[in-house]
Design a binder for these strands. Structure first.
Lengths: 99, 99
DNA sequence: TCCCTTCATGCGCATCTGCGCATATGCAGG
DNA sequence: CCTGCATATGCGCAGATGCGCATGAAGGGA
């Protein structure tokens, strides 16, 4: 079940976009493409991938499309995303055994 | 930093192999290929990908090569792997906020 | 209605990925 | 040595992926 989700996250621009969206607020494509130095079509397509993976949701707001983390993300997926973003930021995880 | 690691995990056979290795013990390629219904070359190559990603280590033992989880995996990577495997197993994560 | 901004998408291309097939390599036993 | 088992790897191929370019579609304002 996790493979498509992981594949969606396993790309630099998409992971950076998720880091930006992890502040909990909405971000339009134009903001994301500026902050991540991506062309418009590239950014748009990456957001489609994240949307199809169920990681983000979008909302029309006048001529903008606002993206945010999917608030209905399954708990397991949410935990995975949180852990990945923390690791990407270089944060220290809490201790625990693997098995 | 996480993208190459996530890309390594984001493939069905490799994720299943990691689930088997997560019992903490060593497994030879012949065992993995049988349990995962994979051909020999396919299994061998997948294990190379996991090894190059730093997720597993291998050891020669007579004519076998024993694979196990990399005991020197960075804590952040270890936490990510643990969370992904738990999610793949359908386990419930502990609660926490994302940002 | 016309124009501008924002975003999505069809198309073609270069590259990457995963695979099977065949072959090479490493090791043990006779 | 020679044979057999376990594993790695060169090769070529089919499909997937990421990209730029151009265009379409949706909405706002004069």
């Amino acid at each position: 079940m996790m493979v498509p989700i992981l594949a969606a996250i396993a790309e630099h621009t998409r992971l950076q976009a998720l880091l930006l969206l992890a502040d909990g607020s909405e971000h339009c494509v134009c903001e994301l493409m500026q902050k991540l130095d991506a062309t418009q079509s590239r950014m748009s397509r990456h957001m489609q991938v994240l949307r199809q993976a169920g990681l983000v949701v979008d909302r029309r707001d006048a001529q903008w499309v606002r993206y945010r983390l999917n608030p209905d993300m399954p708990p397991g997926v949410y935990a995975v995303l949180k852990t990945i973003l923390a690791a990407e930021r270089g944060e220290r995880p809490e201790e625990r055994k693997i098995a």
